[in-house]
Amino acid sequence: MPKQRVCRILKAGEDALREARAALLAGEVVAIPTETVYGLAADATNGPAVARIFESKQRPSFNPLICHVTGIAMAKRFASFDPLSRKLADAFWPGALTLVLPLRDDHAIHPLVTAGLDTVAVRAPQGFGAELIAAVGRPLAAPSANRSGRISPTTAQAVADSLGDAIPLVIDGGPTAVGVESTIVKVDGETVRLLRPGGVAAEEIEAVVGRSLVRAEANAAIQAPGMLASHYAPRAQMRLNADHVAPGEALLGFGPVRIAGANAAKEVLVLSEAADMKEAASNLFEFMSRLDAAGATTIAVEPIPSSGLGEAINDRLARAAAPRGEK
């Protein structure tokens, strides 16, 4: 019988950096912390390594991955910047913004990363992820470090709970600061399209580019990660914009006032009593996981405004509540 992997959790630091670098250069996958969520990283130029990401996550191969880089100079090795995209990179990198850019003819990114598209999603992360990319010297493909379609992990333990022995190593950088995935945009001429709301609010991007973002249409063709209709889902069903809690339901709250029936909920967690969107985003996936573990068949969710980071929060909740036919 094949030898079973043992998933180890190693605290971020110099030893972790050396071990993660060696594993990635050997074609392995490593779960790493970023400021958004934990990512499952592999050398984006190594086909068998990238294939291990899809295998470990049980992710459909038509769903592209984000390439993580140290910054604009590394990204320009394989992608082309138009003036607006360059302006956005200057404003938000390193940080929680992903840009969808045309691939250069001489790029070395493996086609599995781009799902055969002629564009590539690129982000420059902060913290340990940035240090690791610099140490490896190559872009890292890194989707969220969880089973495909399930709740994204914001702690090292959440990664281990989701992927178990499917991966050999998790680097523990503590809870993630942002708590939701990156915002993804694509510049198309003079139009800037929002393909996925995330850790950078649309209003912040609009202030930099001086124009309104165009939202991706429902059921649009997949141009970037995170566009599947059903995604980020707990095992429990999700009931959004609830005005009451039904018997046996758990409750995901927002703000200082609870809806009717909250006292009888199986469990109650409030994303932010103060209605602070940053706090709510940072708590979202962890609280969804905790309510899911409480054993309720349904999680009722109180209404959350869609302004600022609320757009990203509501996007994740809508995909979590969608029919579960897709991974």
Results as ranks from 00 to 15, higher is better:
residue 85 S to F: 08
residue 76 K to E: 05
residue 64 P to V: 03
residue 40 L to T: 12
residue 98 T to M: 13
residue 195 L to G: 03
residue 39 G to D: 04
residue 322 A to I: 03
residue 245 V to R: 04
residue 297 T to M: 10
residue 173 G to V: 10
residue 189 G to P: 09
residue 40 L to Q: 15
residue 209 V to N: 11
residue 26 A to L: 14
residue 231 H to T: 11
residue 66 I to T: 13
residue 283 N to D: 01
residue 236 A to C: 12
residue 70 T to S: 09
residue 189 G to I: 13
residue 247 P to E: 12
residue 39 G to W: 04
residue 91 A to E: 02
residue 111 P to I: 12
residue 115 A to Q: 03
residue 57 K to Y: 00
residue 214 V to K: 14
residue 189 G to E: 06
residue 43 D to G: 11
residue 64 P to D: 02
residue 86 R to M: 10
residue 256 P to L: 03
residue 122 V to K: 01
residue 32 I to H: 12
residue 172 D to P: 02
residue 226 G to S: 08
residue 152 S to D: 01
residue 105 D to P: 08
residue 268 V to N: 12
residue 253 G to H: 02
residue 6 V to S: 09
residue 215 R to G: 00
residue 95 G to V: 13
residue 33 P to T: 13
residue 325 G to M: 05
residue 279 E to K: 15
residue 102 P to E: 11
residue 5 R to F: 00
residue 169 L to W: 07
residue 164 G to T: 08
residue 274 A to V: 07
residue 167 I to M: 08
residue 11 K to L: 05
residue 126 Q to T: 13
residue 146 N to S: 04
residue 235 R to Q: 10
residue 87 K to L: 11
residue 243 D to L: 12
residue 72 I to K: 13
residue 144 S to M: 02
residue 127 G to Y: 05
residue 105 D to S: 14
residue 63 N to I: 10
residue 17 L to Q: 05
residue 130 A to H: 14
residue 252 L to C: 02
residue 64 P to G: 03
residue 74 M to P: 00
residue 150 R to V: 00
residue 134 A to N: 12
residue 308 G to H: 10
residue 313 I to Y: 08
residue 232 Y to T: 05
residue 124 A to T: 10
residue 297 T to F: 01
residue 251 L to T: 06
residue 318 A to K: 15
residue 203 E to V: 06
residue 302 E to A: 13
residue 296 A to C: 02
residue 54 F to P: 10
residue 307 S to C: 07
residue 166 A to P: 00
residue 122 V to C: 07
residue 326 E to W: 04
residue 36 T to L: 13
residue 130 A to R: 15
residue 175 P to Y: 04
residue 269 L to K: 14
residue 192 V to M: 03
residue 197 P to V: 04
residue 85 S to P: 11
residue 232 Y to Q: 06
residue 306 S to F: 00
residue 27 G to H: 10
residue 24 L to V: 13
residue 245 V to M: 08
residue 15 D to T: 14
residue 216 A to H: 04
residue 94 P to I: 13
residue 131 E to L: 15
residue 129 G to N: 11
residue 61 S to G: 01
residue 74 M to S: 05
residue 66 I to C: 07
residue 130 A to F: 06
residue 288 M to Y: 01
residue 70 T to F: 00
residue 278 K to A: 07
residue 121 A to S: 13
residue 265 A to R: 12
residue 236 A to W: 06
residue 16 A to D: 07
residue 273 E to T: 09
residue 209 V to R: 15
residue 31 A to F: 04
residue 62 F to Q: 09
residue 266 K to E: 01
residue 127 G to E: 04
residue 132 L to A: 09
residue 186 K to S: 11
residue 131 E to K: 15
residue 191 T to C: 08
residue 52 R to M: 13
residue 52 R to T: 11
residue 129 G to E: 05
residue 287 F to H: 10
residue 15 D to Q: 15
residue 23 A to N: 12
residue 28 E to Y: 12
residue 213 L to W: 04
residue 37 V to A: 06
residue 298 T to Q: 11
residue 284 L to D: 01
residue 322 A to K: 09
residue 227 M to A: 06
residue 107 H to W: 02
residue 207 A to V: 06
residue 14 E to Q: 15
residue 309 L to N: 09
residue 306 S to C: 10
residue 273 E to Y: 03
residue 130 A to C: 11
residue 136 V to K: 14
residue 298 T to K: 14
residue 119 T to M: 08
residue 175 P to G: 12
residue 54 F to E: 11
residue 282 S to F: 02
